[in-house]
């Protein structure tokens, strides 16, 4: 091999490694006139966030809405009575609707028609993300949360069609008119014409807090039916529960790989 070719290959190899290294270590975004945006030191970091819903514990508190109220209050989710225009991040759905492939004509009476808590599954293979033409919804590589960028959403509602769980709501009207309970100034509202859904409380995780529903379920309701944690961490509560107890996912046959698991 002649000298110049060897030299060229060396430089090329080094540049590739350098670029890869820089991309891998990128922990700050350059912003403004010489400033930087960095992660908050309080951020809870997980490789793959997931939720475990203990259905039996939840059912013991039938009629309880502590988690739903906490989530909707904190995230300024409007309460609209008209089911065609309603907006929801987390709600209760009868067993035979939330688990149509599990329910059969002799489903246990303790489950049949019983409410099951449902919300975005933060799927590992999210169809909503595949169809979004603007990448307004995307899956965070680092922790698996399926995020919404309300600034980018054009309201085409492809994602709503793609999601097999009905996890997404469209704002048919100005949500501010339906926030009679008051607005939480710590979190933005949405505007007419965008789609919204559960975000696994990404903004709270950044402050080192657990999701609002999980906190409400344990503290206000005293039920402890909702558990949140890192599924990639074998020591986390959720990983342990899943390895010890039998759990199911919603519509697993569709290949979306939901990251919300139900103990039955």
């Amino acid at each position: 091999m002649d000298e110049s070719k060897r030299g060229f290959l060396k430089i090329a190899g080094c540049s590739v490694l350098g670029v890869l290294g820089a991309a891998g270590m990128r922990t700050a975004t350059d912003v403004g006139p010489g400033g930087k945006a960095v992660e908050s030191s309080t951020t809870l970091n997980g490789k793959k966030w997931g939720m475990v819903v203990d259905s039996q514990r939840c059912l013991e508190k039938e009629g309880c809405t502590a988690c739903i109220e906490a989530c909707h209050r904190i995230h300024n989710v409007p309460s609209i009575a008209d089911p065609k225009e309603e907006v929801k991040w987390v709600w209760k759905e009868p067993f035979e609707h939330s688990f149509p492939t599990q329910a059969h004509q002799y489903t246990k009476a303790s489950l049949n028609e019983k409410p099951v808590l449902v919300f975005c599954n933060h799927c590992e293979n999210p169809p909503c993300v595949r169809v979004c033409p603007t990448q307004a919804t995307w899956k965070r590589e680092e922790d698996g949360i399926v995020m919404m960028d309300q600034h980018r959403c054009i309201g085409c509602r492809y994602c709503m069609v793609a999601c097999p769980y009905g996890s997404r709501s469209f704002n048919w009207q100005d949500p501010r008119n339906a926030l009679q309970g008051g607005i939480n100034p710590e979190y933005p509202t949405r505007t007419k014409g965008v789609v919204e859904k559960c975000n696994f409380c990404a903004e709270r995780l950044a402050k080192g807090q657990e999701p609002a529903c999980v906190e409400a379920c344990r503290k206000s309701a005293g039920a402890g039916a909702l558990l949140f944690g890192d599924l990639e961490d074998p020591e986390s509560e959720v990983s342990k529960l899943l390895s010890e107890r039998y759990s199911i996912q919603r519509k697993p046959g569709l290949g979306t790989k939901p990251q919300v698991y139900y103990l039955v």
């Binding site: 975004t29 912003v31 006139p33 930087k36 945006a37 960095v38 992660e39 680092e142 960028d149 990404a202």
Partner: peptide
């Protein structure tokens, strides 16, 4: 600056600004 702030928070999860 506000546009960059927006992208840093929403897209990259970086919520702290270290000014120049």
């Amino acid at each position: 600056l506000l546009n960059q702030w927006r992208n840093a928070v929403v897209r990259d999860g970086r919520r702290v600004y270290v000014s120049s």
